[in-house]
Structure formats: C-alpha cells, structure tokens
Design a protein around this nucleic acid. Structure first.
Lengths: 154, 154
DNA sequence: CACTCATGTAACTTTATCTATTACGTAAGC
DNA sequence: GCTTACGTAATAGATAAAGTTACATGAGTG
C-alpha cells in the first residue's frame, strides 16, 4: 500500500465510536484496524489535544466523541494529526546553488502547493456527519448491523 | 525530505543535458545529483523507452535529448517514469467488508482522484522549454554560467 | 583485434522510515 | 488494593528506497 493512512484510520475509528453507546477502548478500536492499541492511542493524541475526543481511564473507560459529527470536518482531523504531507513527490536538493535545480523545484513547489490547497479545501467541505450518512445509505442494502462485533468479526 | 523525488531529479538532468553540447555520461549526471551513475541509468530507462532521450555506448557516449524541449511536457516525463503515486495518503484496508471503511475510503479516493487529475493537468501545461526559460531568467541576475562544471563544482 | 569507455541490468547492501511491541507510569473505578 | 485503561518513551521489527557492486554488451580507438 502507498503512503500514510492515518487519515483513513482515524476516520474509521471516529465513526465506529459514533455507532457505539459508551466509551470504546483502544483495544477494541485497534482490533477494528487490525493493529495495536498503542498505535490507536498515538494516533488519537492529537485529536484529544484539539478537543475532538475525550479519553477516560479505568473501568468503563475508553474514547468518546467530544463534539457532534456535524461539527467536525476532515480538515479538522487533518490538522489535528499534525498536517502530514499530502503529496508524495518532493525536491531533489543536492545543489541549492544550481539554477536548474532552483527553477525545477520552484515550478514543482508551485504545482504542489496548488494541489495541497485543493485537497485541504475539499477536506473542509466534508463533515463526519456526511460520512456517517454515506454509511447509512450503504447500510440500506445490507442486513448486518454496524456494530463493531459484526463488522469486524474475525 | 518527503517522498519520491525522481521527477525533480529527472528534470534536473534533462535540463542539464540541454545545456551541454554533446552526449553527457551517467557519471557526470550522477555528480550533478550527488548520486550514483547506476541510479541515473535506472531513472532514465523509462525515458529512453518512450523516446525522449537516446543513449550511446562507448567512447564519446552518454545521453542526449531525442526531442526539442518544447515537445516534452512534465506530464510526459511523469508518465515515462511509470506514473508514480503523487499523493502521500492511502487507505487503511484492514476490513474490506466494513461499511465504515468503505464509506471513508470512497470519499478519500474521490478527493485524491480529483487532486491527482489537477496535478497531471498542470504537468501537461508545462514544457521543458518553459522551465529552460525560467532558468535563463534566473541567470540574468548571475555572473556564473550554467555549465555543469560551474554549477556543481565540488 | 585487443583495449578502453560507457551503457544495461541483476543482485546485493545499506539506510531510512514506518509500524508494531514492550515496558512502565498514572488515573479511575470496583 | 486490585483490575482496568490510558499516556508515553524506548525498543524492535518490517518494508521500502537508495546506493553499490558486479558483470555483460556494444561502440569507438589505436
């Protein structure tokens, strides 16, 4: 697979949380991503700091959404993850003095910046509530429920 | 640095070739990128197959441009490199059955596709000749020539 | 027709990055 | 106080990119 998939993973996790009643533990969320609980906690750290989720320790603890799904955009999540690079191509910078390198990189940077701005703008247009309704409409053609137990039964 | 920089590297190399009279060897080009000649040959293989450059063996051999700079766009180069991934984020695909995963990934894919199309379209708008004139205009504010020997003296 | 130069490519090694795991600390319930 | 669960640093493992070595092929040179 190509690239960073934290964005996809975090969204997956948040929407699962929305479909559960109480707090969901890192362990349960980790199973839904087939990964380790620590990976989930690391990934959620930024979201907690930005106030999108709460975490509770101890019995009955776990993760809960701190805001309504309609109040969170993909852009919010992207920023909370630390604005990871969206583009997979970079500049060769072996000779900063070289005019050719400067010209090539300037042109590529310009194009890259434009594409990044487009992506972030599109992210800002999508709320988690919209994603959630995407899920519900997919579910119309299904019998199985959306609970973790069903979706990720192994 | 982030990501793949073959595009930047190849453009650098091609424009250097344009500023040299005869064939340029992989060894000379490699020095301009501070890398190994084999890396250059690997990188140029696709361009040769697509007819953008010629390679000659033996004495006085090396690489030459097969077309005018005005006849080559960044998109051409991108395709000749094998259309490497342009975006740095991908999908978590742990549970293809999961409706949430499907919905999240569908939305991200859609946005990614749009951004990729924008990038390729922008690449198609830029010819190597334009990059070359960028270089020349940068050179106006300089005394040093554009030859490899000057630009990459170590 | 040897000799040298330069590409063509496969195989291997090194390096960097990302992911996963382990370990241990803190806090909240029971 | 015992268990549960998060918080986080440190370690280890896996994967992919870059670099290197090795050797074969072909083109010029004397």
């Amino acid at each position: 697979m190509s690239g960073d998939n934290r964005l996809s993973s975090v969204l997956h996790v948040l929407l699962h949380m929305a479909h559960e009643d109480g707090p969901v533990t890192s362990e349960v969320l980790a199973k839904s991503l087939r990964t380790n609980p620590v990976v989930v906690r690391r990934m959620m750290a930024g979201l907690r700091q930005h106030g999108y989720v709460h975490s509770l320790k101890g019995h009955g603890g776990g993760w809960t959404l701190a805001r309504d799904l309609a109040q969170i955009t993909l852009r919010d999540i992207y920023l909370a993850l630390g604005s990871p690079a969206l583009l997979a191509f970079g500049n060769r910078s072996a000779n900063p003095e070289c005019l050719i390198e400067q010209a090539v990189n300037a042109r590529l940077d310009e194009t890259a910046r434009e594409a990044e701005q487009l992506l972030v703008a599109r992210f800002a247009d999508v709320t988690l509530a919209e994603l959630d309704s995407d899920i519900r409409s997919r579910n119309l053609r299904r019998k199985t429920a959306l609970k973790l137990d069903n979706a990720h039964a192994s």
